[in-house]
């Protein structure tokens, strides 16, 4: 199950994570976000222990969205060692998300 990322736990869950983190920036009113949500949950289960999967609700966490220049959703960001390693704006397939993570 993907974890909910907030500005309070961002440092602990993302920056200090010792495994890569895939963060999905989404909102309840965003159609494409709803389409990608099941894929994100599947990846959270499949990659358990290898990649941490988190979700940022931009409605509730505008500061995080602003900090990472997220102006279009869904946006996926891969963090490695606390830094942005890869970023994608818009809907993409599961295979392409795995490519973003360097897994295939």
């Amino acid at each position: 199950m993907a974890i909910e990322i907030t500005k309070e736990n961002f440092e602990e869950e993302v920056i200090k994570s010792d495994i890569p983190v895939l963060v999905d920036f989404w909102a309840a009113w965003c159609g494409p976000c709803r389409m990608i949500a099941p894929t994100i949950e599947e990846l959270a289960d499949e990659l358990d222990g290898v990649v941490k999967v988190g979700k940022v609700d931009v409605d509730a966490q505008p500061e995080l969205a602003y900090q990472f220049n997220v102006m279009s959703i869904p946006t996926l960001i891969v963090f490695k060692n606390g830094k942005v390693a890869n970023q994608n704006v818009g809907l993409i397939s599961k295979a392409d998300i795995k490519k973003m993570l360097g897994i295939e």
Binding site: A27, W29, C30, G31, P32, V58, D59, A65, N69, V70, M71, S72, I73, T75, V89, G90
Partner: peptide
């Protein structure tokens, strides 16, 4: 600037502005 201020979808991205 696609996704960095240029958008093709008002309903998706209007919120950020």
């Amino acid at each position: 600037f696609k996704g960095k201020g240029i958008s093709f979808c008002a309903i998706c991205d209007g919120f950020f502005f």
